[in-house]
Every structure is written in structure tokens, then in C-alpha cells.
């Protein structure tokens, strides 16, 4: 089954660039990605630019509305994702717990819909 692991964190918390913790933190991501690749679980995964770069679009009455900023103003924002192929939820949850940001933010695990 495919699971989307959505990585949420508060921007500006957790290890920041230029600090001693940042190197090992990023290495943690590289190790995790490699581990998922080796296990044949990695479908894809990316980090996102900060929410200051976000633009939200909605079409109402046939008209496209463009708004500066994220869809919802929340304390924790989506910062990246992994799409993994895992045998079951327990395995996906274990993988999610290994994502470095899980120590500072949260990872939401969502199964991907299988269209019949």
C-alpha cells in the first residue's frame, strides 16, 4: 500500500541552518531517504519552500482567485513529504517515526486511495 507521510513543523523551530545541530539533522534526512530507497519503499519525497512562498488559488463562479499565503493559518505547516510503499499501517508508522522532523513537529500518515 502507498502511504503519504506529510511532515508538519513550525517554521523556525528545530535545528536551523548555521547551527551545530543542522548538519546531523540533514544527514538524518539523507540517511532516511537512502534507507527507504534500499528497502524498495521510496516512491518519492521532497522538501517544500517555506510558507512565505505559498500562493493559494480557488475558482469561484468561474473566476480564479489568487491569494498570497497558505490555505490555512496554522501553527504547524506542511514542510515536506514522503510517498512510501509499505506493507501495512504499522510499518508506515514506524517509518514516519524515523523522519528527523518527527522529533520537533508531527508526521501525518495518510493511505493513498486505490481507485477500483
Amino acid at each position: 500500500m502507498q502511504y503519504m507521510l506529510l511532515i508538519y513543523g513550525q517554521e523556525g523551530t528545530g535545528p536551523q541552518p548555521g547551527t551545530d545541530e543542522f548538519g546531523p539533522f540533514m544527514q538524518g534526512y539523507m540517511d532516511f531517504t537512502q534507507k527507504m530507497k534500499d528497502a524498495g519503499k521510496l516512491v518519492s519525497g521532497d522538501a517544500l519552500q517555506p510558507i512565505a512562498t505559498a500562493t493559494t488559488v480557488a475558482v469561484r463562479d468561474g473566476k480564479s482567485e489568487t491569494l498570497d499565503g497558505p490555505f490555512a493559518e496554522t501553527k504547524e505547516q506542511l514542510g515536506g513529504y514522503y510517498l512510501l510503499d509499505c506493507p501495512d499501517l504499522d510499518d508506515a508508522l514506524k517509518c514516519a517515526a524515523e523522519i528527523p522532523t518527527a522529533k520537533y513537529g508531527r508526521v501525518e500518515v495518510r493511505p493513498v486511495v486505490i481507485w477500483d
Binding site: M1, Y3, P87, D88, L89, D90, A92, P111
Partner: peptide, 14 residues
């Protein structure tokens, strides 16, 4: 069903 909660015993560490 949808989340893939397997019908199995937990892993020993869990």
C-alpha cells in the same frame, strides 16, 4: 481496511 491496519500480532518491540 482503508488505512491498511493489518490483522496480525504486533512486532515484538511494540
Amino acid at each position: 481496511r482503508a488505512a491498511g491496519i493489518a490483522f496480525k500480532l504486533p512486532e515484538p518491540e511494540d
